[in-house]
Design a protein around this nucleic acid. Sequence first.
DNA 1: CGTTATTGTTTCGGACCCGTTTCATTCAAG
DNA 2: CTTGAATGAAACGGGTCCGAAACAATAACG
Lengths: 116, 116
Amino acid sequence: MAVNLRPSQALRLWQGVCLSEVNAGMPDLSHRQLAILLTVYLDPPPHTVRGLAAALNVTKPVVTRALDTMGALKLVSRHRDEEDRRNVLVKRTIEGALFLERFGDVIIAKAKELPI
Amino acid sequence: MAVNLRPSQALRLWQGVCLSEVNAGMPDLSHRQLAILLTVYLDPPPHTVRGLAAALNVTKPVVTRALDTMGALKLVSRHRDEEDRRNVLVKRTIEGALFLERFGDVIIAKAKELPI
DNA sequence: CGTTATTGTTTCGGACCCGTTTCATTCAAG
DNA sequence: CTTGAATGAAACGGGTCCGAAACAATAACG
């Protein structure tokens, strides 16, 4: 069944999730960083810096720095590609999976609370 | 009818909208700023700096600076409350309404594209 | 009045993000 | 082997955000 939202529902959903994020003391990831994180977890691997930059239409340093930040938070991990040591492979972590699981739960909860 | 999302749908939705934001060259509003903007447009007025800070559980300078930024973008406007000149009333603008209308359309479109 | 409270703004310091450019490493092709 | 291409990371400069604290301006109260 397709997911159909009305305008006020769409914006209310966004407001509710943004508020949860702010108040939960969640690390403040930029939209670019969140898009990178979600792509790593939702799209099939392998994920390289170049590939992510191309997929999201951002520059490579944006991806590198996002991986620095999210790596420090243990949300993703980096590994050299042993078959082509120029590449860096971005991989998922337990912490990242838990983080996004919780994030998804927030979205689902806010969606369920929406007025009809 | 309640809006029920599955976890993968919720995260896909967020990914799609984040990507649209980044690529559309939309002004980079933080989550706090977006939450403030949405609250001004979705919750009934009047909106004061103090009221917004309390509603979102953020500090007053955060609200003031968000209004600076979004005011420069014409997304909201400020007016002194003539009945109590200590208060500042935050009001909606045409540009802000159009901005959020377009933003809502992006969310709706991404929701409709979600796999079943 | 003069004092206290409330409201919003500004300042300060630190941290982060972004785009561009430059650099180091690694592969591939002549 | 040497040269050139590709990949990711680092450096630079500008801008923004944040929290805490100090600062006006206005109102309320004794």
